[in-house]
Design a protein around this nucleic acid. Structure first.
Length: 111
DNA sequence: GTTGTGACTACCA
DNA sequence: ATGGTAGCCACAA
């Protein structure tokens, strides 16, 4: 169950186009688990550091990086986003331009 | 099993 | 806009 959610989150995050971002709630909803935003956050936290998943494109509903500012992952995520062309307004992302649709295909193949 | 904490979100003052 | 509160789920002790 939670493992299946984990896989679904993986593929959902993996299909986020470069230069765009998605929120935890959005991903959870796309996985068929609305309200599991927090669970998504935990899953991403459990990701291995060498993962190929663009976890840095996942942000909170406020349009900010969800990690604590003191964390190094925060800096890394912000840096990666800027590198992909995502503009920041102070520490917040301009969601108007970079919000992700979340078009998901159910027939995605298993990873 | 219970409790506390956290990469969350929505609602209300 | 900002801050507090409640609901949510997963995980560690």
């Amino acid at each position: 169950m939670d493992q299946q959610l984990r896989e679904m989150v993986w593929q959902t995050v993996a299909m986020i186009p470069q230069g765009k971002v998605a929120t935890y709630g959005q991903i959870a909803a796309c996985c068929g688990y609305p309200g599991h935003a927090r669970g998504v956050g935990h899953i991403l936290k459990k990701l291995p550091p060498q993962t190929a998943l663009p976890w840095h494109r996942v942000i909170n509903a406020r349009g900010e990086i969800a990690l604590p500012p003191d964390s190094e992952s925060y800096q890394l995520q912000k840096q990666r986003l800027e590198q992909e062309g995502v503009e920041f307004e102070r520490d917040k992302i301009r969601l108007r331009l970079y919000q992700w649709d979340g078009s998901v295909d159910d027939s995605v193949t298993e990873n």
